[in-house]
Design a protein around this nucleic acid. Structure first.
Length: 192
DNA sequence: AAGGTAGACAACCGCGGACAC
DNA sequence: CGTGTCCGCGGTTGTCTACCT
């Protein structure tokens, strides 16, 4: 039994592309009250949208610190490196690319990078030569409990520092640390 | 000019983690 | 400890546009 859709309760069932007026309302509300409280935001801002839709619109399109324009060669290179380490964890990858969003990077990956890697004869998921069997897929393998308990190496601190994790007990951190342990060949000293 | 197709990206959906109670 | 709620994430779909026939 799943949770009911967030939009049903408030009849906030407006869907599809955002209008200029909706954008303006959302921007004005966030400028006045700040980000957060997405569930109550639509009503407070006078929008017939669900909170999730508002959050997505703000994060992916309206935020003032977004970088516009195409992905640079340096960013392109960094995305490949980060994806080889993290797999499809787009939000973590976006966290290392100022002004870029997870959605933008995900779309970019699916439309450009997959083709690019394939043309180089590399598997877009494993980053290994096509046809070469790969034991694990970094993005999908669940971490056994015993592995999580075993993170005591210097690599753990390196991962925490690299991804700015301040809560090393978080599952996202544990997963990233696990992946890094598996890929000692990957250099975490990346920069734009 | 009209219809078809592919590419790009905006937006939606469902799930799971975190947290409060 | 169990349950409910909110938020964020990643996969997927929808829509618009440019290009081709």
């Amino acid at each position: 039994m799943g949770r009911s859709p967030c939009c049903e309760k408030v009849h906030a069932n407006n869907k599809g592309a955002w209008t200029k007026e909706e954008d303006e309302r959302l921007i004005a509300h966030i400028e006045a009250h700040g980000e957060g409280s997405w569930r109550s935001l639509p009503k407070a801002a006078g929008l017939l949208r669900c909170g999730k839709s508002c959050r997505l619109r703000w994060i992916n399109y309206l935020r003032p610190d977004l970088k516009r324009g195409s992905i640079s060669e340096e960013e392109d290179d960094l995305i490949i490196k980060l994806h080889s380490l993290l797999g499809n964890r787009w939000s973590l990858i976006a966290g290392r690319l100022p002004g870029r969003t997870d959605n933008e990077i995900k779309n970019y990956w699916n439309t450009h990078m997959k083709k690019k890697l394939l043309s180089r004869g590399l598997d877009p998921q494993s980053h290994r030569p096509l046809g070469q069997p790969c034991k694990t897929t970094l993005s999908s393998r669940p971490i056994p409990e015993h592995e999580i308990r075993g993170f005591q190496s210097p690599r753990t601190a390196e991962v925490a520092d690299f991804f700015h994790y301040d809560r090393q007990e978080s599952s996202a951190f544990k997963r990233a640390a696990s992946d890094a342990e598996e890929r000692p060949d990957l250099n975490l000293d990346l920069c734009i």
